[in-house]
């Protein structure tokens, strides 16, 4: 059985995980803004009229 490993500092891996974290935050903010801007148009497109279904 392989022994338990204590995480050691690895800048390249930290950068990799940091990139995923950054992408997640950017997507949360970006899609949030996208939703606020385009939600009325998308709703109109989907239900074919004024979006009072919400």
């Amino acid at each position: 059985m392989a022994g338990l490993e204590i995480p050691t500092w690895d800048p390249e891996t930290a950068l990799l995980i940091g990139a995923i974290l950054l992408e997640a935050v950017v997507l949360y903010v970006g899609y949030g803004g996208f939703e606020r801007l385009f939600q009325p148009y998308i709703m109109k497109l989907l239900i074919g009229g004024e979006s009072n279904a919400q």
């Binding site: 995480p7 690895d10 990799l16 995980i17």
Partner: peptide, 8 residues
Amino acid sequence: LGSYLYGQ
């Protein structure tokens, strides 16, 4: 943490 360990 899991991703970091696998990433290493």
